[in-house]
């Protein structure tokens, strides 16, 4: 929902407002995770580790709906639309390009909101396991969620390619994460 500043503001102010808008978005992913059946039966440590390694990827999926790949523009929830060119001033050009490509692919699948939510749950529990203690429990949860995601095939019996195509987005997201989660944010210290 966070507006990127109008042109009149300095790029530092643009940076500040862009950085600020990540905070509520991250909190929403934490709340979303807690609503995933089985997530809260993982240990708190493993919940935190999964969130730390998977939240950026879930955000990338959530932000897809803001990206208009055809128009090369982003529309924030407050209705403000910014062209890719104008957003490049934030110095996130490479991330934005990758986001447009990813959102084009994901968007073309035409998932329903509940299917997108199931996909985001799979994205979260498929995140990097390096800090996880009970890997078995996480893998069981992932298996259950992937089974649930097969919903998209039962809804489209004549399209058996959609499910595998969707799972192929997971490595895309991991690449996005590895390339871009080290982007810098800047917070004013008052």
């Amino acid at each position: 929902a966070c507006p990127v500043a109008p042109a009149s503001r300095s790029s530092q102010e643009v940076w500040d407002s862009f950085s600020q808008c990540f905070t509520p978005a991250v909190r929403e992913v934490v709340e979303f995770a807690k609503s995933i059946p089985g997530f809260q039966s993982l240990s708190q440590h493993d919940q935190v580790m999964l969130l730390k390694s998977g939240t950026f990827q879930v955000l990338m999926v959530r932000f897809c709906s803001l990206f208009d790949a055809k128009e090369r523009a982003v529309t924030f929830l407050n209705g403000q639309t910014y062209s890719l060119a104008s957003l490049r001033a934030l110095g996130m050009g490479s991330l934005l390009d990758a986001m447009f490509d990813f959102s084009e692919k994901l968007g073309s699948m035409g998932l329903e909101p509940d299917e997108m939510a199931l996909f985001m749950a799979v994205v979260l529990v498929s995140a990097d396991r390096s800090g996880i203690v009970d890997v078995g429990a996480v893998e069981q949860l992932q298996e259950n969620l992937i089974k649930a995601l097969r919903l998209i095939t039962s809804r489209r019996p004549d399209d058996s390619t959609l499910f595998p195509k969707l799972l192929l987005r997971l490595p895309d997201l991991r690449t996005l994460n590895n390339h871009h989660s080290d982007k810098l944010l800047a917070f004013r210290i008052d």
Binding site: S19, F22, T23, F56, S181, A186, I189
Partner: peptide
Amino acid sequence: PKTHRVMTLADHISHIITQDFARNQ
């Protein structure tokens, strides 16, 4: 004077998650 704290997206995300879980303990 230093007016900004700079951190990576990943660190910012980790910070918020740690804060959230600590608050709900």
